[in-house]
């Protein structure tokens, strides 16, 4: 983990007005595992004061990509960055997905911007020779992000794109794929989705890793600002930034 002066290469707009920020950061780019994140200082003053956490979306040699939507002040400032501007980033942070292991098929379950970590993940899985199925859900078509993913199955709550219903219902419909292969599920998305996914995985005894979120100040374990309840140890919290953000779904209370 380092703080490294990095530079904005370009901002690319993809589907549904989602921004991809391409950052020149050779030092950090060299040590990333999918599912890790960066903590970015978007301004060089106190507006805003704190860094903003973003999943690492993709890595291409000396470049790192993050994927974001304009939400508040921090992302508004990021979206206005110009090529060549310096960017103060801290990373890579946290524990990513365990891409090696006893499975031959990776099942991605992504909700909305939960798609962010999966382009890099997909690349790595492919290079490891694993099959990939990507289940992608959102409220409506404007939430669906398929960037960098293969073998996509889409669901929307309003039926405007793909299957009408939740992404978990869609998984259930395709449970054959899950039962007939040696699978492991990898997921990132809103809490209600993760909660339903946990129920689904427990019921069917599927192994699953999830990327979680929390409000954060430091991003590297010194502020204790990002607790998540552990399933096994009731006397202390885990930290999303340091123990996570990726956890086995069995280990955390969602």
């Amino acid at each position: 983990m380092v703080t490294a002066k990095s530079f904005v290469e370009e901002i690319i707009k993809i589907e549904n007005n989602i921004h991809l920020l391409k950052i020149y950061s050779p030092k950090i780019a060299s040590e990333i595992t999918p599912g890790q994140f960066l903590n970015i200082k978007v301004s060089d003053n106190f507006f805003p004061l704190l860094r903003r956490p973003f999943s690492i979306c993709d890595v291409d040699e000396k470049f790192i990509y993050i994927m974001f939507n304009i939400l508040g002040d921090g992302t508004k400032i990021l979206a206005r960055k110009r090529t060549g501007e310096e960017l103060d980033i801290l990373g890579p942070l946290g524990h990513g997905f365990k891409t090696e292991g006893n499975f031959d098929t990776a099942i991605i379950v992504a909700g909305g911007l939960g798609a962010a970590p999966f382009p890099l993940f997909t690349k790595q899985m492919s290079s490891l020779g694993k099959n990939i199925y990507s289940f992608i859900g959102g409220k409506s078509e404007s939430d669906i992000i398929t960037y960098g993913m293969n073998n996509t199955f889409i669901s929307t709550d309003d039926g405007s794109f793909g299957f009408k219903g939740t992404v978990i219902e869609l998984l259930n419909r395709n449970i054959k794929i899950l039962q007939e292969n040696k699978i492991k599920i990898f997921s990132c998305g809103p809490t209600p989705m993760l909660r339903a996914l946990k129920e689904f995985c427990v019921k069917n005894n599927f192994d699953c890793e999830v990327s979680t979120e929390s409000a954060m100040a430091c991003g590297f374990g010194i502020c204790q600002g990002c607790p998540i309840e552990s399933e096994s140890k009731k006397d202390k919290y885990l930290l999303v930034c340091k123990d996570g953000p990726v956890f086995n779904i069995k280990d955390v209370l969602i």
Partner: peptide
């Protein structure tokens, strides 16, 4: 001490509020 449940922090203008609860 386990400390307080989340949410423990929130950003404010040029500052932040924390209620870690002495974890």
């Amino acid at each position: 001490r386990k400390g307080n449940p989340p949410q423990r922090i929130v950003e404010t203008p040029a500052g932040m509020l924390n209620a870690i609860g002495l974890a």
